[in-house]
Each structure stands twice: as C-alpha cells, then as structure tokens.
Simulated assay, not measured.
Amino acid sequence: MTTRTAPDRGPGRTGGSVVVLGGTGFLGRHVCAAFAAAGADVVPFSRTARPALDNCGPARPDPLAPDTGALARLCADADIVVNAAGAVWGGTEQEMIEANTHLVDRLTRALATLPARPRLVQLGSAYEYGPTEPGAVTGEDHPPAPTTPYGRTKLAGTRAVLRAAAEQDIDAVVLRVSVACGPGAPPNSLPGIVAAHLAEGRGELRLAPLLAHRDLVDVRDVADAVVAAARAPAGQVTGTVVNIGSGRAVPVCTLVDLMISLSGRPLRIVEERTARGTRSDAPWQRLDVARARRVLGWAPRRSLEESLADFMAAAGVPPARSRPTGQPKPPGHQAGARRTDGRADGEPGQGKDGQ
C-alpha cells in the first residue's frame, strides 16, 4: 500500500482537493474559506443546511453513520481531510462520545483503507489538558487530564489520530485549539450573548461570575493554521500535536468590557449569585504556541480588539461613534456578588454541528 509523499500535498498544488467535515460550523466555515482563498477545491460536509463561506459551494450531508466505507469513499480523491466536526457544550455526553471520539476512530480506519492517503488535520481542543495552575503556560508535552466530558471525548479523538499515525501509517496532525473568537461566533457563546444585548439596546445583562482567564485566538487565524498544517512537510508534523492559540491569558471580564467599549453603548453587567452548572474545568488557560511557529511557520496575526470588532459588525452591532474630548465613556462592567461556579466564562459554545 502506498501513500502520497509530502511534496504532492496541500492546497497550493494544481487540482488540490480538501474535504472538511463539519464544514458549516464556526471553525469549519472559516477553514473552508481559507482553503478556497488558497486555490483549493473545497468540499464541505455538514449535518445542517447552513451554507459554507465564500467559494466553497453547498455543504453535503455529514457522514456520521457508522459506515467506514462511506467515509473512505468521500475521502478517496482528497489531498487533505480536515475534521472540524464535533459536539461541544451544547451536546449531551453521548453526543460528545459519538462526534468527538467514535467519528474520529471511524475516520482513521477509513483512511487506512485508501491506497493513496490524504493528510488528516484533526481539530482538537485546549480543554483536553484539563485544569492548569494560574500563571502556567501549557505546552504540548503537558500531561492531559481533563475532567469534563467534552475534554475527555476530545482527548480520546486525539489519541485515536496519534495511534493511527503510529500504527497504520496515517499522515495526520492534531491542532489543539484554544478558545476561538471572531466573525460568526455562536449566539450561545459569551461574546454572542453580550452582542445580542448590545444590538437590542438592553441596559443590563446578568451573568455568572467572570472569573476565568482564556487564551483567545481569532477564528481566521485558526483557519490559517489549518492551511499551514496541510502544507507542512510530513516529517515535521505527522503524528504530532500542535497548540494553536494566542499565547496570552485574557480575563473574560476584559473581553466583555472591550465589547461594550467598542459598541459605545451602555450595558451594565451584573455578576449574579445564582448557582449554575459549570461547563469548564479550566479557570486558567494559556497555551505555548512555540511549536506552531517552528513547524508550521504560523503565528496569530489579529488582535482581540480586531477580532471582536469584526464579530460585532457581523452580528449587527454598529461601532461606537467618536466621542468629543472629555465626554465620558459609557458604563461597562460592573461586578455584583461573586461566586466560583460560573458558566459564562468565555467558552466557544458551539453546538453539535461542528466547531
């Protein structure tokens, strides 16, 4: 059985074909757009009828049925396969097991049957690491120990990919992505909730305590990293995990304050005491992205302010008009009673259609 060699790979070569599972999800749509801009023939797959982004064509039905043969057929002519599908915070634990673990296992088994194997770029999650100490910078050699169903099922998917690379000669790389933000962020994410209140001119928003620190990276930078991973020499990336993030830990209250400031609209944030379920086990998150710089030639380019401004414009929140000198800024974050079991702490919040 033969495999394609690294020089043949990537969207830059003539006739390059890219299959994107979860191609209409938050990350998947931008991945499709980035490959299309690079000249690739992009084929998105999705479980919803939502369109992909520019130049990607309509999404085809997503192959979540337990049929490795169907997966092999749809990947047979691809040069690159990107798995951006998955169930996130909106899914049940069983949905997470199916989408984040079982699908990945079927996909790697399907690729192993192909005589000419595409490169697989698997989108993992920084939540695979589990809790880390405040102030820590987490590199790829950090032992993963997630305590949530999402983190555990994503880690199981990562391990399936690494196992296939080691035992079945699959050319595959895992990008362990931090919290993505930017245009198209889901409405049930923290930025989505804040933007909805700003767009509708509501004066007050009650949230769980904004205590967490998150490594926030623009979704378009993530898509650029996927393209870079598709193009990288096999010897540098096959069978590896690569962190993709900003390399900075941002307090989520800063994210909220920045959105309010960019809008120029008054919004009082009240951190309430009511108990809610915790979605994350990671109060602190900051990734070491040195490996991405070294092996992919990639670094984040967009600032958090640019990312949020573009997101808010896409969400229908007009930017603030320039204020005369000396005019006070609108009221922003105003802490109320604080507690530690918060929900709205900067999670991506995507549903089960993809990341």
Rank of each mutant, 00 (worst) to 15 (best):
T238C: 15
P149C: 08
R73Q: 14
A320I: 03
R117A: 06
G124T: 06
A212M: 05
I269S: 06
L258M: 15
S307F: 04
L162R: 06
V161K: 01
A230M: 04
T24Y: 02
H102N: 10
R248N: 11
L53V: 05
D105H: 13
A116S: 13
S303P: 06
G332H: 07
G203R: 14
R13N: 15
G342Q: 00
Q350D: 15
A156R: 14
R73N: 07
V82Q: 03
G354P: 04
A185Q: 04
V43C: 08
L120D: 01
R4K: 11
A232W: 03
L198M: 06
S280N: 07
G297N: 09
D79W: 03
G203N: 10
R220A: 04
D67I: 12
S263L: 06
P61D: 10
L198D: 01
T274F: 12
E204D: 10
T278Y: 07
R268W: 10
L304H: 05
R220D: 10
N83F: 02
L207V: 13
A49W: 07
V18P: 00
E306G: 08
V121R: 01
Q350N: 14
G245Q: 03
G139A: 14
A337M: 11
A165N: 09
L107Y: 00
G346V: 06
P331I: 13
K352A: 13
D141S: 15
N100A: 07
P146A: 13
L304Q: 05
L21F: 15
G12V: 13
V161N: 03
G201W: 02
L107N: 01
A112T: 08
T14E: 14
L210N: 02
F311S: 00
G235F: 03
I193M: 14
Q285R: 08
V270Q: 11
T138C: 11
P58S: 13
A208N: 05
A290Q: 04
V161E: 04
R293W: 00
P66I: 07
A72K: 06
D105Q: 15
L64N: 09
A99Q: 06
A70P: 00
A145K: 03
R338Y: 09
R60W: 05
L296K: 02
S280M: 06
L296S: 02
A126E: 04
G135E: 11
G342S: 12
L162D: 12
R206G: 14
L155T: 07
I244R: 01
S261R: 15
A315P: 04
A335L: 11
F26Q: 00
V121C: 04
G86T: 06
V43S: 06
L120P: 00
D41R: 15
T148Q: 15
H142V: 05
